[in-house]
Write a protein that binds this DNA or RNA. Structure first.
Lengths: 121, 121, 121, 121
DNA sequence: GTGGTCTAGACCACA
DNA sequence: GTGGTCTAGACCACC
């Protein structure tokens, strides 16, 4: 689990952490049950405030990516394959919708957009 | 020119206005030289503060979409077709690259992605 | 007397007119006694409001470049050679002081500045 | 970092602040990474509104002189020496060209102009 | 009438 | 604590 933060990025640091962990869980790189390092460790290694790390963890717990066992720390939450797929699709669709909206606003047709997509793939 | 704001959206109001005007200029819906309604008018119609509208206008002026003639009002700035195309491509490519990256990470093929795109268009 | 205005310039239109006439008077291109075209003529030719032209004329009269004879229009005011020179020097010194201030703020020495000046001369 | 504002000056306060900070960054007086005092502090010390300070900061951020880390404050942005030099030259040359043009129109020689410059330095 | 600037005071997200 | 955004209302220069 290689976490990193970019302070120059406009997205909040706690959000950067959230995205990285969520992506690793969804891709399977972080298997359910895997223990996470203590907050204070992450905090020191990344050079960010413990409060910031705690914020990220809280959102991850809220969204079902992590769970906490008092006294033992945080772990990757169990997640069904169906659930995983649905989250993955949700993310992809959101991204697609944004791109499509941008293209329509700029007067680009579906054909042109698909051509550009194949080009970048 | 149909402007609208969504106060529940997390993106700032002035940013929402910016995106809408910029898109209309880039798509050609707003031709160079077209006068914009006075800030006070836009402000009243949208129910937002004059200053919020001004913030959006300021960024649009800075980025070359609008120009202002004090005492006469604001106008769509002249823009070369080449410049317009390059801006359109820049905006779209950023969005496309993000979507493509997400799709590849999930093992979605270009064909499948294009099918999804056409579906949402 | 070739007047022109640039609406895209950030300096007010009436100021642009002022500067052009003042420069022509100081350089001698407009001799004392020369009649100026009527305001409404200038207004039409330049495509600017009569009020704008009037503002420029007013400042020029106030600063002694023009004088008005009711019923006959405006004329270039008589100006002594000493007066002309003093105004010219005043303008040049103001320009120099601004440049020097800028150079000092940027940490450029007098020698470096002079070298750049000779280069551009 | 000694900031000051002159309310009698015709140039906007936020512009005065912009020029002062930009000059200090370009001259090297403010090194990259240096933290700036909080907006609220600057605001109180200068006796101007927080928003006026914010306006200046906003332009400085936009133009790459500063960067902001919400929650931590504003900092002098990293800038390459080459970039710094090019900006310095750009600023000075604009000022120099204006002065030189005025001098030539008055028949002042380069030597005379340089003498005047050294005198005012 | 227009836009340009400034003020005082507020609420929010982030660290 | 920090900066980011928004409001309501004011004064000015310009056209």
């Amino acid at each position: 689990m290689n976490l990193s933060v970019n302070p120059n990025d406009k997205t909040p640091i706690y959000r950067q952490l959230y995205e990285q962990i969520a992506a690793e869980v969804l891709s399977g790189a972080l298997a359910p049950g895997t223990p996470l390092p203590p907050i204070r460790t992450v905090s020191k290694e990344l050079g960010v405030s413990m409060i910031t790390v705690r914020s990220a963890w809280e959102e991850l717990i809220r969204d079902g990516y992590l769970l906490t066992r008092t006294g033992s720390g945080c772990f990757v939450a169990p997640i069904s394959e169906a659930h995983r797929q649905s989250k993955v699709n949700e993310k992809l669709l959101a991204s697609i919708d944004e791109t499509v909206a941008g293209a329509r606003a700029l007067g680009v047709t579906a054909d042109e957009l698909c051509a550009m997509i194949r080009d970048r793939f």
